[in-house]
């Protein structure tokens, strides 16, 4: 092991993972390269676009801004963890049915952001809450309207 490398153990999508790498390596890159979970995307590398969104200990975070050192002992969930064994999650189904995904690159982050948004509110979200709640996830294709519809419809189910 080189001098600045460390042993990190973390829980990713329910599995215990041990890796040896640089502590400052971005969690995003560890997920994509070391663990092979490429569903989490890089859009900007500076926490602006939300394409790299994951859950860390149940909270939505930008994985491009987290050094893997700080993921030690944490519970990480990526988009790959969302679908059920035999069917898609209701949010995924809703995005499919209501045109919430076009090119799809922002979609994993957008869907996880939606999951957190729906989990935080008991009762229906207002339009404003949805619009503001997704403000950290940029989309260039849809113009957002069908994403709002997908969120609203996912709520109902």
């Amino acid at each position: 092991m080189e001098t600045n490398q460390v042993n990190i153990s973390l829980n990713v999508n329910g599995k215990k993972i041990q890796i040896t790498t640089y502590g400052m390596k971005r969690l995003l890159d560890v997920l994509r390269e070391d663990i092979g979970l490429t569903g989490t995307k890089e859009g900007c590398g500076e926490g602006e676009c939300g394409a790299c969104s994951i859950f860390m200990d149940g909270q939505l975070v930008n994985s491009c801004l987290i050094p893997v050192f700080q993921a030690e002992g944490k519970k990480i969930e990526t988009i790959e963890n969302l679908e059920g064994k035999t069917e898609l999650h209701k949010i995924q189904k809703s995005f499919l049915q209501h045109g919430g995904a076009q090119c799809g690159i922002c979609t994993p982050g957008m869907i996880l952001a939606t999951k957190e948004l729906l989990a935080k509110k008991s009762g229906k979200l207002t339009a404003k809450e949805i619009e503001e709640g997704l403000g950290g996830n940029l989309c260039r294709c849809t113009g957002y309207l069908k994403i709002f519809e997908s969120v609203k419809q996912a709520e109902g189910k």
């Binding site: 790959e80 499919l96 919430g100 979609t107 994993p108």
Partner: peptide
């Protein structure tokens, strides 16, 4: 209504973009 052909891959994170290769 016809669903997006490659939509399931996109909403699950399985669609493979060039940096996923």
């Amino acid at each position: 209504m016809r669903l997006r052909t490659e939509g399931a891959q996109k909403v699950t994170g399985h669609a493979r973009y060039i940096d996923d290769f």
